[in-house]
Computed example of a mutant assay.
Amino acid sequence: MTNIILKYTIREEQVLREFLLANNISRKTLTRIKFDSDGSIKVNGREENVRYLLKINDIIEITLPSENFSEVVRFIDKPIDIVYEDPYFLIVNKEINLPSIPSRNLEDESLLERVNYYFKKKKINTIPHIVTRLDKNTSGLVLIAKHRHVHALFSNMEIDKYYTALVNGKVKNNEIIEAPIRRVSSSIIEREVGEGGEFAKTEYWLEEYISDKDISVVKLKLYTGRTHQIRVHMKYRGYSLLGDGLYGGDMRLIPRQSLHCSNLAFIHPITDEMINVRVDLPNDMTNVIINK
Rank of each mutant, 00 (worst) to 15 (best):
D86F: 14
P282C: 12
M234I: 09
P87F: 04
L264P: 00
R237L: 14
S110R: 05
S258R: 03
T286C: 05
E158P: 00
E178F: 10
K221N: 08
L241G: 04
G196D: 09
E195A: 10
I41L: 07
S185W: 13
F69T: 00
Y84I: 09
K213N: 11
P282R: 08
T9I: 15
S185G: 09
R183I: 01
V131S: 04
Y163H: 01
S100H: 07
V73R: 14
V288F: 10
S240P: 15
I210Q: 02
T271R: 13
I254K: 07
Q229A: 09
T224F: 13
G249D: 09
K292D: 15
K219H: 13
P79E: 14
E203S: 12
T9W: 02
I91N: 02
M285V: 06
D280C: 06
I130S: 00
V83W: 12
K161A: 07
Y8S: 05
G248E: 11
I289H: 05
D108E: 15
V72Q: 10
D160N: 13
Y117W: 14
S37C: 00
N125M: 04
V115C: 05
P102E: 13
K172F: 11
E71R: 02
L264K: 03
Q14A: 12
S110H: 04
L6F: 10
I4M: 11
L111P: 06
S185D: 14
R11W: 02
I254D: 00
Q14N: 10
S66A: 06
Y52G: 00
T132W: 11
A165S: 12
S155T: 15
D244P: 06
Y52H: 13
S186G: 06
V83Y: 08
L264E: 01
E190C: 04
D135G: 03
Y247S: 04
R231M: 11
R237H: 05
D108K: 15
L246S: 03
F75E: 03
H233S: 10
P65N: 01
N287Y: 15
S103W: 07
Y204I: 01
I25P: 01
P180C: 11
I267C: 10
K201I: 06
T224W: 12
M1F: 11
I275D: 02
A145G: 03
R74Q: 14
D284K: 04
M1A: 11
R74H: 09
D284T: 08
P87H: 11
G196K: 05
S40L: 11
S216M: 14
